[in-house]
């Protein structure tokens, strides 16, 4: 498992696409918003939690199809399926690698982008916390979607169509946590729900993803 994690991280680093692209995309989306809605600080500050969460979610989506597609094309998945580690571990590990190269950098970069969007001071800690708790769910759900579409030639668009509806609860609770934090309301409920979704996804989806991969390898 460590071997697989290290390999995936090395590959992401060497290919250069892993960290950089998603972060750059997140930045660009955030920069585009003021051009769209106008530079007025009050408006931006009010919509900042939602924009930052939607931006992080889309940036996450961008790199999903790489989770399994490359390994499928070069035959690695075939060999993995006959290796002594269970496929469930493989899918969970690859989701973890995806989170380390996408979700974690996005979480760390989000406060800086919050400044650009006039996010009120009270929101910063909640933004970081909610992203840290919620993005693992995004990676795991995404890995499941990637497993479903791994055998398809042009699976990218379909992957978005399948995964985005599954992201809705995470987005709702994540953005609401920040919004409540900004308004000084209690944030326990959305944060706990977010944690619940993450833990539930990590507990169940590796099995669903492994099942999907087995079907796709047939």
């Amino acid at each position: 498992m460590t071997a697989l994690l290290l390999r995936d991280l090395t590959l992401a680093l060497r290919a250069g696409g892993g960290f950089g692209l998603s972060l750059a995309f997140f930045l660009i989306v955030t920069v585009l918003v003021p051009f769209g809605v106008g530079p007025e600080g009050g408006v931006l500050g009010r919509i900042a939690p939602g924009i930052l969460w939607v931006g992080a979610l889309l940036a996450c989506l961008l790199s999903l199809d790489r989770i399994f597609a490359l390994d499928y094309e070069d035959g690695t998945l075939d060999l993995m399926a006959t290796a002594p580690i269970p496929l469930e571990t493989v899918t969970a590990t690859k989701a973890l690698a995806h989170w380390l190269t996408t979700g974690l950098p996005l979480t760390l970069a989000a406060p800086a982008l919050g400044v650009l969007l006039n996010l009120p001071t009270a929101g910063f800690s909640w933004l970081t916390l909610s992203l840290a708790v919620g993005t693992p769910a995004l990676s795991m759900i995404g890995a499941f979607g990637a497993a479903l579409t791994v055998g398809l030639k042009r699976g990218g668009l379909l992957l978005s169509l399948l995964v985005l509806p599954l992201y809705i609860p995470t987005l709702i609770f994540g953005a609401d946590c920040v919004r409540r934090g900004v308004e000084g309301l209690p944030t326990t409920t959305p944060l706990l729900m977010l944690l619940g979704i993450t833990l539930g996804s990590v507990a169940i989806l590796p099995f669903a993803a492994a099942a999907a991969i087995r079907v796709n390898l047939r």
Binding site: T2, A3, L4, R7, T10, L11, R14, A15, D71, E73, D74, G75, T76, D78, L79, M80, T82, A83, P84, I85
Partner: peptide, 30 residues
């Protein structure tokens, strides 16, 4: 767990070196 399969595709990662590729599989198979 006593079967090794080698198909048309070799499962080689082009950005890794020969040693890294092989060592990865050695670790996976313990």
């Amino acid at each position: 767990e006593d079967v090794a399969y080698a198909g048309h595709a070799d499962g080689i990662k082009s950005t890794l070196s020969v040693t890294e590729n092989l060592r990865f599989w050695a670790r996976i198979f313990g």
